[in-house]
């Protein structure tokens, strides 16, 4: 093995990688926020057993959870243009993450809502609160706290899975690094640096959510 590790090469390519990193962060942020929003709405439909919507949401969740994200991305990017829905890579990138993450977050919120003790709902209804108010003022705040650890896991997965967009040549961090590697063959330098970036951001995200979990912990649960 006669591979010369060149730390200088990393510094040289850092500005290029920073642009990729920016797109990774933008797409992940939209993906995480959108997935949480879909998750809450979908879980609300299911926990209230809204007719029709309940079934539709269930089908959506099972379909997106049981098929590979990469095939979903291909479908959005290569199949939908056939019916006149042509998206650019950036749109597909965040849309795919929102739809995929939304299915997982829906399941996480649903589990959280279900874990809220029945007595709380009954007490809220006894106080004359309507279904919407019971959900938003009682079930959501408690269920959210219960669901937080699993919500965090999916947020981190969305960040990691933004790397799938290399398959549609969207210029995020992985795509940028792979392009540099295929031109320069500086494999170890590039993968070391993006590996540290992904692990570092995932760790920061996890640590941030950990702080939130402790801040929001229900009295008597810790």
């Amino acid at each position: 093995m006669n591979y010369q590790f060149q730390p200088g090469f990393i510094l040289e390519k850092l500005p290029e990688l920073a642009v990729g990193l920016k797109f990774t962060l933008i797409v992940s942020a939209i993906g995480i926020a959108g997935a949480l929003a879909i998750g809450i709405l979908a879980a609300a439909c299911r926990s209230e057993r809204l007719p029709l919507l309940d079934g539709l949401v269930k089908a959506y969740v099972e379909l997106f959870r049981n098929t590979p994200l990469l095939v979903q991305i291909f479908f959005l990017y290569f199949a939908l243009p056939e019916v006149g829905l042509k998206f650019e890579a950036f749109t597909v990138a965040w849309l795919a993450l929102v739809l995929w993450g939304g299915a997982y977050q829906a399941e996480n919120f649903r589990a959280g809502f279900e874990a809220v003790a029945r007595g709380y709902r009954e007490a809220a209804r006894a106080l004359g609160m309507g279904r919407a108010l019971t959900l938003s003022a009682v079930v959501l705040p408690i269920g959210l706290r219960i669901a937080l650890p699993s919500l965090t896991n999916i947020c981190i997965s969305i960040l990691k899975n933004s790397s799938y967009m290399v398959a549609i040549s969207f210029q995020e961090l992985t795509d940028t690094a792979v392009n540099i590697v295929s031109l320069s063959f500086r494999v170890f330098e590039m993968f070391l640096v993006i590996g540290i970036m992904y692990l570092g951001i995932a760790w920061l995200l996890g640590a941030g959510m950990g702080v939130l979990e402790r801040r929001l912990a229900l009295p008597g649960t810790r």
């Binding site: 093995m1 591979y3 990691k160 899975n161 790397s163 799938y164 290399v166 992985t174 792979v178 590697v181 063959f185 494999v187 170890f188 993968f191 993006i194 590996g195 992904y198 692990l199 995932a202 760790w203």
Partner: peptide, 24 residues
């Protein structure tokens, strides 16, 4: 465990795919 669980799978795949040829 932390490295191979923490890295996006696609990066691991590219890493293996590109690295082994780099060391012949």
């Amino acid at each position: 465990v932390e490295v191979w669980r923490g890295l996006p799978i696609i990066i691991t795949l590219f890493f293996v795919f590109f690295t082994l040829p780099a060391i012949n």
